[in-house]
Nucleic acid binder design. Structure first.
Lengths: 187, 187
DNA sequence: GCTTAAAAGCTAATATTGTTAGCCTTGCGT
DNA sequence: ACGCAAGGCTAACAATATTAGCTTTTAAGC
């Protein structure tokens, strides 16, 4: 055989994400990833310690992707405009990759990679709220409220929990406005 | 008479829920349920069509439980008081059974049982908002916003996604107040 | 009271998956 | 040129979901 294009952990995660996007988290199996990467199943263990660890990598990747998207959305904006852009970027990501979003765990606390990725995401949220001049625990609470709304909506929408998608844009706009009003009133 | 304590679908679901509560959704296996019910694994198929169907039953049960709790919480109250009671009941249920809550799907659309259970839950939400005099799509949007907040918070809290639990009561109170203010302002 | 048929259990068997062990080859560093 | 580690492979094992078919119990009808 010629020079084989060697596999890497990143490529394994790529294939796994494709699989999840296309067929849902339940279809994430080492056998399927192996088939997609053109390799025998046990060979994957040279790049990934276990299926559980692969899931962890997926979580990290999703958080990193979201961080990148949110950062881009927020660049050059501040105040309400930035918060709106951030929240719409959140919804857009979940809408583009519903299975992936549903698969990513909300508790990135299992290993150091996840913790670090989660911390970076949190930094973007905090920075986005910076112009509101929130201090200490006020900033923490405001960040949590933002997460609750963005994740709550994305979670329900991406799993089809709203039933008919009719008027969902309006619902989300109302949520964004509610949050902004609250930020203002809280002062 | 109960010459022999026969197994029933409900008892299988009971055992499955215990298992999920104690060891998480990942530990839900037919073998484990069989062990807990004192029966050989294949015998479970006399009461449940498949593991997937068992998961569906679990979803229905969770929705029914929540409906009962919410109904009780809301009885004899109206307006802001009712909404507060409902939202706190939601959080309490998820906090008492975090694994179960995380395991229950947000899209009860797979079979008729799930759809019916979901509709009943929705009826309670709509009834709770009745005293605000919302009509048509306004009521739909208000219900959705309520779900987003309650589920978003419960989802993150039950999976440990908030990190330190410090001040979570305050965060939730702020969310409840934000929603009530929004309901008022929307009028 | 006896018969019988379905309900509910069991064992055996199969396919799929995660995982480990051990071998073989390739290509890079020296 | 050569050795060795990285990265692939096959074989093997345990656990699981699921199916098939047998046996026993239960309850109902006569």
């Amino acid at each position: 055989m010629a020079v084989r294009p060697r596999l890497t952990t990143a490529k394994v995660v790529d294939a796994a994400l494709e699989l999840v996007d296309e067929q849902g988290a339940g279809a994430l199996t080492l056998a399927a990833v192996a088939a997609r990467t053109g390799v025998a199943t046990p060979s994957l263990y040279k790049h990934v310690a276990s299926l559980a660890e692969l899931r962890g990598h997926i979580g990290v990747r999703v958080i990193e992707d979201m961080t990148a998207r949110f950062t881009e959305a927020v660049l050059g904006r501040s105040g309400d405009e930035a918060v709106e852009a951030l929240m719409h970027a959140h919804r857009a990501y979940a809408a583009e990759h519903p299975n992936r979003y549903a698969a990513a765990p909300m508790d990135p606390l299992h290993d150091e990679l996840q913790r670090a990725a989660g911390a970076k995401l949190m930094d973007v949220l905090l920075a986005t709220l910076r112009s509101y001049g929130l201090e200490g625990s006020d900033a923490v609470h405001a960040t949590r409220r933002l997460r609750v709304i963005a994740h709550g909506f994305a979670s329900i929408e991406s799993s089809g929990g709203f039933g008919l998608p009719e008027g969902l844009d309006d619902t989300y706009d109302q949520l964004v406005r509610m949050y902004l009003d609250d930020l203002r009133g809280q002062s």
